[in-house]
Amino acid sequence: MTVARAAGGHLLYLLFFVWTLFPIVWLLLTSLKTRLDAFSIPPVWLFVPTLKNYGQILWISEVARAFVNSLVVSATSTLLVLLLAVMGGYAYSRFEFPGKRASAFVLLVTRMFPPVVIVPSMFRLLRATGLYDSLGLLTLLYASFTVSFSVWMMKAFFDEIPCHIEEAALVDGYSRPGAFWRVTLPIAAPGVVATAIFTFVLAWNEFLFAFMFTSQRAKTAPVEFVGIILRETGVEWHLMAAGACLLMLPTLALSWVIHRYFVRGLGLGAVKG
């Protein structure tokens, strides 16, 4: 009875793993196939893998430049957000100031804004000012949509560092900024890294703004990729799969680094109480 139950449990979570990972494994396999193998039915499981698709996809239209754009926008917006989040998180964790509660609530509430809502208002303005299709604009947009949760996340990390550590540093003769730079920030370093990775991944994965606010110069990798998929002139799954893998691998690697912080990063303080 218990044996059967344990076996049943094992089977269930094996099933869960297959369901969860199969689409990703399938994508990886397809990216290593030749065109012929990619379209064969029944599907080919054993084949000689090739990395040719990866080389080829980068030469298709503007894929390579789109990847560079993605990297630039994600990195710049992450740096910007990090600066704001360390400052803001520290302030919410340590200082009393007028409007603290109200502004914290605003910060929380803006996290729920559906990004698409600002599109109608931005559209004409951007066209008129020439900001449409620029990396700078995308950077600012990404920063503004990740800043509230990053501030929140950094606040949680600073909250975990007891105040008396800083007070001790002050007694030891550090100035206030000195105590922050030399004592508090190094202790909060893992939190800074986790926040940075979250912000970077969100920007790297972003599709909606890039799709609506770029057309040529500032196109990001996801926009270029979706463009290729939807063009549908001679479907080339093996190449598209290679492109998909190039998009997904950085995210997978980075998320793996911070998977421990996931629940906290999602802002689920309410769960842990």
């Binding site: 704001l84 302030a91 200082f95 502004s103 605003v106 600012l140 920063a143 503004s144």
Partner: peptide
């Protein structure tokens, strides 16, 4: 926490400004 009100407000101001303008 610390009581110097100006510093705290100044530290959160940039983030709030960004949200106000872009969102």
């Amino acid at each position: 926490g610390f009581q110097d009100r100006g510093v705290g407000a100044a530290l959160v101001a940039p983030a709030l400004l960004l949200l106000a303008v872009m969102l």
